[in-house]
Computed example of a mutant assay.
Amino acid sequence: MNPVLSGLIDLLSLEKRSDDQFVGMSQDLGFPKVFGGQVIGQALSAASQTVEGRVPHSLHCYFIRPGDAAQPIEYEVERVRDGRSFSVRRIIASQLGKTILVMTASFHIEENGLEHQDAMPQVPGPENFKSELSLYRLHAEEIPSKIRGLLTADRPIEYRIVENQNPFRPRAGIGKRHIWMRSIDALPDDPFIHQSMLAYTTDYGFLETALQPHGISIGNPQLNIASLDHSIWFHRPFRLDDWLLYVADSPSASASRGFVRGQIYNRDGVLIASTAQEGLLRKSELYDLT
């Protein structure tokens, strides 16, 4: 397996301290704050290790304060309920005694029932687009030197954006994105690895959709952007080492907050997950960011 990908699997695996306590290392992406998707994925991994015979079907979390990329993260799982069909877990992620994320996750047994779904949008397949990484490398001279190496380094997940454009000089348009994504190598058959890794992935570039109507780059120095909350609903089994289409749209931005929602399909058009997030979008010329 590619070492970049195996490193992400290890990051999400966690060290077990007790039946309900786990510790995860922080991923250094060149920024002082921990990537929100990492904390989501690790929290789901912690909760999954306390449940048997059931798979996660939804999670809802709030980012309480920024995580420190130089510090490990402690995860404490509360076993809220184990019913006949569902199990609920509450997860607290903390650093140095301070809470950075609160998550509630629900797990469900396998059941058959009514079936329907939205149709997948008709967009060209992933082979028609360049990877986002290749765009970063193409425009490397526009990336600040202190983070250029990190943004142009190999990644465990490949993203191919249908609405391809220069990420540092975006054009104003509708608040909608279509992103093909998959792991860069084959993954183990363990469904919890695929789910925790998808949880990690769903936070990447998601809130950026709310910037598209305004033509503002996520790297704009006048912008303070941060995830405030995040939700995922897992509908059907999937594999992240096959191409998935992440369809994201932003129906609203107001009061320095942007709202985004997403649907994730496999290449056969099966809806496998849905997401939603609200995030901070604050202009520095209007607010004191210190």
Rank of each mutant, 00 (worst) to 15 (best):
residue 33 K to Q: 14
residue 233 W to D: 05
residue 220 N to G: 09
residue 72 P to S: 07
residue 96 L to K: 15
residue 218 I to L: 07
residue 269 G to A: 03
residue 75 Y to C: 08
residue 193 I to G: 11
residue 76 E to N: 08
residue 20 D to M: 02
residue 216 I to R: 01
residue 187 L to M: 15
residue 214 H to C: 03
residue 30 G to N: 04
residue 104 T to Y: 14
residue 221 P to D: 01
residue 165 Q to C: 08
residue 173 G to Y: 09
residue 5 L to H: 07
residue 239 R to N: 06
residue 178 H to I: 14
residue 31 F to N: 04
residue 75 Y to N: 08
residue 26 S to G: 04
residue 83 G to H: 01
residue 8 L to R: 04
residue 213 P to T: 00
residue 22 F to A: 10
residue 46 A to V: 00
residue 73 I to L: 10
residue 14 L to N: 04
residue 47 A to S: 11
residue 262 G to E: 01
residue 77 V to E: 03
residue 281 L to K: 04
residue 276 A to R: 02
residue 50 T to H: 02
residue 33 K to E: 13
residue 182 R to K: 15
residue 259 F to C: 03
residue 100 I to Q: 09
residue 80 V to R: 01
residue 136 Y to I: 13
residue 247 V to R: 00
residue 46 A to D: 02
residue 266 N to L: 02
residue 143 I to F: 00
residue 44 L to N: 12
residue 91 I to H: 10
residue 78 E to R: 03
residue 170 P to G: 02
residue 130 K to H: 07
residue 87 S to T: 15
residue 252 S to P: 01
residue 16 K to R: 15
residue 74 E to Y: 03
residue 197 M to L: 15
residue 74 E to I: 00
residue 102 V to F: 01
residue 19 D to I: 06
residue 79 R to G: 01
residue 153 A to M: 09
residue 200 Y to T: 05
residue 86 F to V: 10
residue 71 Q to S: 10
residue 77 V to S: 05
residue 203 D to E: 10
residue 136 Y to V: 13
residue 115 E to M: 11
residue 239 R to G: 08
residue 144 P to R: 02
residue 182 R to A: 11
residue 211 L to N: 09
residue 67 G to M: 06
residue 285 E to Q: 12
residue 25 M to V: 14
residue 180 W to E: 13
residue 8 L to N: 07
residue 63 F to S: 06
residue 266 N to K: 03
residue 64 I to F: 08
residue 168 F to I: 14
residue 96 L to Y: 04
residue 233 W to E: 04
residue 85 S to N: 11
residue 2 N to T: 00
residue 112 N to A: 12
residue 33 K to F: 08
residue 173 G to F: 07
residue 229 D to K: 03
residue 283 K to V: 00
residue 280 L to G: 05
residue 81 R to M: 08
residue 81 R to K: 12
residue 159 Y to P: 00
residue 239 R to Q: 06
residue 154 D to S: 11
residue 155 R to Q: 13
residue 127 E to H: 09
residue 46 A to E: 05
residue 149 G to F: 01
